[in-house]
Design a protein around this nucleic acid. Structure first.
Lengths: 348, 348
DNA sequence: TTGAAAGCGGTACCAA
DNA sequence: TTGGTACCGCTTTCAA
């Protein structure tokens, strides 16, 4: 019923081996023969059987892209850039790879589950994006899984994620600490002394590194740390909204709000507006990542721009084996501060 | 080197067949035997070979989710909801399916490419989300491909997409026409007579249906259509921004702007703000879909809320065979108008 | 340049 | 309840 390679071979009057060679294009085949085969493929409307092919070749066309939250444009942008590199060219039969985006929801269990599923599929490569959960047992489990994937021939690339020891995975890390420090130093330089910080989930690497940078900047500006000026939440608008309200409730005199990322910043802006505060005149708000959405929400929003698209594209190329990865991975992709009408202290 | 099912069988002192039964859990196996097998699996750290399994069983664990733009929250929300239904339970070995999100970028070629790739992988199901390209040849090609997928045993579900004739695909359609009409009728009811319309890409089904609804409402309100009050663009913020500027350039006296979706509306709001116009006092803006992002951008934004999450979840369940498909394979999903401080005409 | 044939690792039918 | 064993459809030596 379904057309197989043997059917094509019969129709083209060649052996199955020859058809396979034509389809994979990795072996010399006489032009006329190739023609006949391709015509037969066309006439029979033949589609290669992926599983069979993967089984025989011990590798598949699948490339997994793990994201923490598919509804977050941050990951959407990265996934899109990676996919563009992957789906484009190269690969076996048909010259195409299937880039599959897996949504872990930031849950370590889901992450492990997807990694196992990809391992089961003998994925050609796996790209993990965004912050990692720092919980030790889970980190160890993920590290072990990545190691196994690597041993099984799957290329592993980390993008915007800290390196994993012992797993031969290429790591493209973002300089979250440096970026966050630059943001807060900028605000301190404008004269802000009372800064609120809207942090991400406690156990996430991005949360921790950005917070460290913030603290470092506070310290060097001689501003004393106050735990009441930090609230933790998710990396989403809702958390930014609620967090900003909470920070203002604790201290209405804050002159600046630093958000862990742009979605959080967007929510914070909404909260400030509803509280009758102007941005950035009354309260200066800064984000992180520089997503377009944030620009719309608050034209006066200052953010640290991470080269998401570039980094993701690079990760994609490395995953495809089209770009060399330096030994030990690539450290600290730097961000750039984008100042949009940020103002100094106007109140009290 | 890699552990196979035979290794597990040897270690557990049973036949490969028994191991397979234990792993798939679809066949009675004595409890003690099962125990031994599971222990062996654990000790050897065995992971099932997906391709081999798919080849033998003639079906895979893969479920494809096609989206037009992964960076658009509209699709992110839907993909996330579908994935939640799919990744959860059921399925073969391990009880898990791999939900893979494929980003077509709205291109018919990419769409076909991914469908072929999924066909090649013998995907268990495919869910196509969002508007379809109406170009006849492409539509026919997609229809043919879907038909073939269906024949090959892949369940096909359309979510927010018009039905495809002859392809035994379940269609969960959104009532775009009715929704758009409701939006414009609402504005007309407030006294607006000079309305601009920011449409999506010309050849997209969603664009056309929403535009039809808009026109129907104009007609029944006795407002004459003016082609200069319609601009086409993409379904993104940038198009909304540029489109709004263009509409205002053509006619500064517009009192209302209807956007094809919320991202477009967000961009339009940004453009209006920069043009010194207040929303909704000077110009009433309405969106479509009711994405959270739009609410942030313009607290006064009226939108038509589509039950994206619910519809997507339902599509996911249907794809998994856990929910009955609507009679005739087509279910119309209605939206609901959410009015947020929309005002009538205040100018001229 | 092409063909023959031995796997790749499971699954599921048929027996026992 | 368990085992034996033909396949599933393609890839890839090895020979010709």
């Amino acid at each position: 019923m379904t057309v197989t390679l043997a059917d094509v071979a019969a129709r083209a009057q060649v052996s199955p081996a020859t058809v396979s060679r034509v389809l994979n294009g990795n072996y010399p085949v006489a032009a006329p023969t190739r023609e006949r085969v391709l015509r037969a493929v066309d006439e029979l409307d033949y589609v290669l059987n992926g599983p069979a092919s993967a089984l025989a070749a011990a590798t598949s066309d699948l490339v997994g892209i793990l994201v923490n939250d598919i509804a977050d444009p941050f990951f959407g942008i990265m996934a899109s850039a990676i996919q563009a590199e992957i789906g484009g060219t190269g690969g076996r039969a048909g010259g195409e790879r299937l880039a599959v985006v897996c949504n872990t929801g930031g849950s370590p269990e889901q992450e492990l589950k997807y990694l196992t599923l990809l391992q089961r599929q003998r994925a050609a490569a796996v790209v993990l994006t965004g912050g990692a959960v720092l919980d030790a047992p889970h980190a160890a489990a993920v590290a072990a899984k990545l190691r196994k994937l690597g041993e099984g021939g799957t290329r592993v690339v980390l993008c915007g994620r800290p390196p994993v020891p012992d797993a031969r995975a290429v790591a493209l890390t973002f300089d979250n600490l440096g970026g966050a420090r630059a943001v807060t130093e900028h605000l301190a330089g404008l004269g802000h002394r009372r800064l609120g910080y809207l942090a991400g989930p406690e156990e996430r690497s991005t949360t921790r590194h950005r917070l460290e940078g913030h603290r470092a900047a506070l310290a060097s500006a001689g501003i004393e740390e106050d735990p009441r000026r930090i609230v933790h939440g998710q990396f989403d608008r809702r958390s930014g909204y609620q967090g900003a309200l909470e920070l203002l409730r604790r201290d209405r005199s804050l002159t600046a709000l630093v958000a862990a990322n742009d979605s959080v910043a967007a929510g914070a802006c909404a909260a400030l507006r509803e509280s009758g505060l102007r941005i950035p005149e009354d309260v200066s708000v800064t984000g992180f990542d520089d997503l377009p959405v944030a620009t719309d929400v608050a034209p006066g929003l200052t953010t640290l721009r991470l080269p998401l698209t570039e980094a993701a594209a690079r990760a994609g190329r490395i995953a495809m084996g089209r770009e060399e990865a330096p030994a030990g991975g690539i450290g600290g992709v730097r961000g750039e501060l984008v100042v949009r009408g940020s103002t100094g202290v106007a109140r009290g």
